[in-house]
Simulated scan of single mutants.
Amino acid sequence: MVGTGDYPGCMLASLLAERLGLPAPPPRAVVRLSHKYYSRILQRGLVPEATPDFVSLSPYASKPQLGRLGYPVFIKPVKGTMSIRARRVDNVHEFREGVRFSLLELVRKHLILRPYQHLLQRYTDGEVPAWHFIGETPLSGVQVTVDGFMERGRAVVMGVVDSVMYPGTISFQRFEYPSHLPARVLERMREVAVRLMEGSGFDQACFNIEMFYDEVHDRVSIIEVNPRMSYQFADLYERVIGMNTYEAQLALAVGEPVPWNAGAARVGVAASFVMRRFIDGRVTRVPSAQEIARVKERFEGVVVQVLCAPGERLSDHVQDVGSYRYAIVNVDAPTREELFARYTEVEQLLPFGFT
């Protein structure tokens, strides 16, 4: 059983596989790792040097109980997606703004998370419900994603992808492989990932761990753990080293040895670029099939995924905080300079229109 989506995909796959006796990570491990507070508890026990201070926060409290954290604090839902509601807050007023939901939003949130709440009551102490928040010491630095898999209790790191934000935001601009961080830093990240995952109880599936490297303090910190593969990155690995991460995930799902044998690099670098606007708008035009075909003729292997359609508002789709995705472009090149030049040309050849 395979699930590449965090919720409910990988949890449902884990539960069904357990019932059917198929290879898959234990539900207890998946539930705990995907809950940002209980995941931090695991991290604090296994890799304390890479775990920031944290505290659980009720969105219904008139005043957050921050304990020793104090302001500023970074808050996010314990079960969230795409950085929605994740933000830094500097005072009580900003905290209340950050956790304020309309009645309709509250009803939807509780209905959507009700099955997950049942799993929390089964596999944890249940003291931090699925609709609560976590507060953490703010982190900074170079952000990356460490991709790997667990096979019969052994962790293997497949690679590290740089996760680059639009300047001054927490919205992803691109995901670039391989990472440009120094080899010694990448080795520390691999060691942290292996120690954490081998002690977590997770097994027989891919995982990815988002991390920061703070060069000023020479510190590696975990942002969060995702008990699933990074499906957006599978194409990047195949372009650069000739191995697709789906190959690893599918082998694990059927109980076969993982054929992960990264050979010599086929190209120098690959990236998945996220095209965004920072104001909402109605879509008036998207590239035609013929226009996309011309881009692919110009640059062999380019992947273009259009995320909107004429007549829609960008906000009709689930979006990050403060920005609106409308397309994803995957491209590779011999060098980083050529990579950016190719993407710039691709962007110019893809006509989008917004009011």
Rank of each mutant, 00 (worst) to 15 (best):
D235W: 11
I84G: 00
L111K: 05
L181F: 01
K79C: 13
L22R: 09
P259L: 11
P334Q: 07
S288I: 10
R313F: 14
M1T: 05
R188G: 10
R336G: 00
E347A: 12
W260V: 12
A265D: 01
W131Q: 03
S179E: 08
H110Y: 13
G9K: 10
V144D: 01
D6S: 04
Y237A: 07
R108C: 07
D147H: 08
V157H: 01
R294G: 03
E345Q: 09
V240G: 05
F74E: 05
V73H: 03
R228K: 14
G21S: 07
V89G: 06
F54C: 08
P259I: 14
R298S: 14
T51R: 00
W260R: 03
P77C: 13
E300N: 10
L103K: 11
V283N: 03
L22N: 00
P52W: 02
T124C: 11
M1N: 04
V185G: 01
R96L: 15
H217D: 11
L349C: 06
R100I: 03
A234I: 00
T169I: 06
W131S: 12
R152D: 15
G9L: 09
N208L: 04
P26F: 00
D332R: 03
P115S: 10
A13I: 05
H132Y: 15
N244R: 05
V164G: 00
F133N: 02
E337I: 01
E300R: 12
P26H: 11
S163A: 11
Q305E: 15
S14T: 08
G98R: 03
E136C: 09
G80K: 09
F74P: 01
R228F: 05
A341Y: 06
K76E: 15
P310N: 07
S171R: 04
Y60H: 14
V156L: 02
M211I: 12
M150E: 13
A248I: 09
L12I: 12
R28W: 00
L66I: 08
V73Q: 05
D218W: 13
V161P: 02
G168W: 08
A327G: 12
R228E: 13
Q121T: 04
E337F: 06
L111F: 09
P27L: 05
E176T: 11
R188P: 04
R100V: 07
E215I: 14
P257K: 10
H180N: 05
F133S: 03
Y7N: 04
G5K: 09
T137S: 12
G263Q: 06
F273A: 05
N226H: 10
M11N: 02
M1G: 07
I84H: 04
L15T: 05
Q249N: 11
I112K: 12
V304K: 11
F74N: 02
P129A: 08
H180T: 09
L349N: 05
R239L: 15
P182V: 10
D162K: 03
G21F: 06
H217M: 06
V346P: 07
I292Y: 09
D280F: 08
A61I: 07
G80H: 11
L307M: 14
Y123A: 05
R154T: 15
E94C: 00
E191A: 13
V303A: 15
Q305W: 01
V240Q: 00
S102F: 07
R325A: 08
L104H: 09
C308R: 11
P257Y: 09
T145Q: 01
E300V: 06
L33H: 09
F175G: 04
